[in-house]
């Protein structure tokens, strides 16, 4: 069951891991997927959101946009050593989005880190419209 409060759940996959996210609209779907990704990477409760970064992502279609968005967040985490816990998608279309993400510099003494995500894959990827809004599935290579 997708938790109504978090809007995502972790799904089982033999060697890797994935998430299924739901939301009433596309913006929240992307936000929930981002929270799901970072919930896999670290304990979100250990993160304060003191710093804001604005990002813009483009892709060829909606599914590719979801992969590009999550890949961008993972890249930001891995290269700028900043952890994120709050995601606000401000504008979203079929092929581009603008978002503000909040977090703080990585501190290994403070943040409880779980795992490293090598890549966001296209395997089993979907975004579909449901009676309640949207649902998406993403598998990560760990």
């Amino acid at each position: 069951m997708v938790s109504e409060r978090s809007g995502f759940e972790h799904i089982d996959h033999t060697a890797d891991a994935g998430i299924r996210a739901t939301a009433p609209d596309l913006s929240q779907l992307f936000e929930n997927a981002a929270t799901g990704l970072f919930d896999l990477i670290l304990n979100l409760k250990t993160v304060d959101t003191e710093l804001t970064r604005n990002i813009r992502v483009t892709a060829t279609d909606r599914e590719a946009l979801l992969v590009a968005w999550l890949s961008e967040l993972n890249y930001q985490f891995l290269t700028s050593r900043t952890v994120f816990a709050d995601f606000q998608v401000q504008e979203i279309g079929e092929t581009s989005l603008v978002a503000a993400i909040r977090g703080e510099p990585l501190d290994l003494t403070k943040h409880e880190i779980y795992t490293e995500v090598k890549a966001v894959t296209y395997h089993g990827l979907y975004i579909k419209e449901t009676t309640e809004g949207f649902e998406a599935q993403i598998i990560f290579d760990l």
């Binding site: 089982d12 033999t14 060697a15 890797d16």
Partner: peptide
């Protein structure tokens, strides 16, 4: 090779 998923 894994016998269990990480979640399991």
């Amino acid at each position: 090779g894994r016998a269990m998923s990480r979640k399991k």
